[in-house]
Amino acid sequence: MSDTFLAWLTVLPGYTLPLLLASLGLMISERAGVLNLCPEGFMAVGAMTGALAVLAGYSPAVAILCGILAGTGLSLLFGLATVVFRADHTLAGLATVALGLGITGVLGRPYVQKPFDGLTRLSETSWGEGLPRLLGQQNLLLPISLILVLAVWYWIFRRPSGLSLRAVGEDPAAADVVGIDVQLTQLGAVLASGALGGLAGAYLSVASAHVWVEGMVAGRGWVAVAIVIFAGWRPRGVLFGAILFGGAEAAMLRLQTQGVEFPLYLGAMLPYALTLLVFCIACARRGRDNGAPAALGRVYLRQDKH
């Protein structure tokens, strides 16, 4: 039994980190008041671009950087639409997801199912040979991601610029009159969500699967959207939510490989059922104030006559 647990713990980061990174970025964007449904799209372009870069002969580190850039590029489109041209956040988000999935479908087709050597595990590096399996199976993105969570928490709650970010999401008019550039802040936050979404996607292909398959994001972007709400827009909650959902997915696949009789589709469905369940409980417990930034999804126009 403890072997099963250890095995689960070993594969846990592989399922948790993409969710963690994507929802962390999403949280930044929504803290600035931009309702962001894009992670599925960001992750898709990040995953494909990362895989393509490796197949083109670049190192995994560069490939991951390419994934980040791709996610950022797509988020720039979303940011222009919502922040600069004041499009409806929900519609622009859905369109961005469709665009991301479409691009990967078209550009990625020739590269589907071509395995490659992705990011090295710690045990494969020169200095990490003696590491126990639990650590040795991981890669550098695990510590980096954990540090990122801490850094984002510190930035949002302890730095003046984090205060500005939250103010824009809570009350853009109040932020505006004290001289904070609402649009610039929101655009920056959207780009951050794109970068982290792209990183999450690149993790899937370059660090985890070592192959690119169309549709490999498989709804994780939507789970990220749910995690952020579940987390009440707090970094700690995001970490916990990502472990919860990632852990459930990992456990499901573990059980299947252990030979537990289980209908495949029921297993695939379970994370979503869990999402729904956890959601209902979390929201019912929290009552009216779910922690959402007060101006989330609202388009701010200074020249509005109130």
Partner: peptide, 12 residues
């Protein structure tokens, strides 16, 4: 703090 930050003054 937000207002001062908006005015370019960094305060904790």
């Amino acid at each position: 703090a937000l207002a001062l930050h908006g005015a370019g003054r960094r305060v904790t």
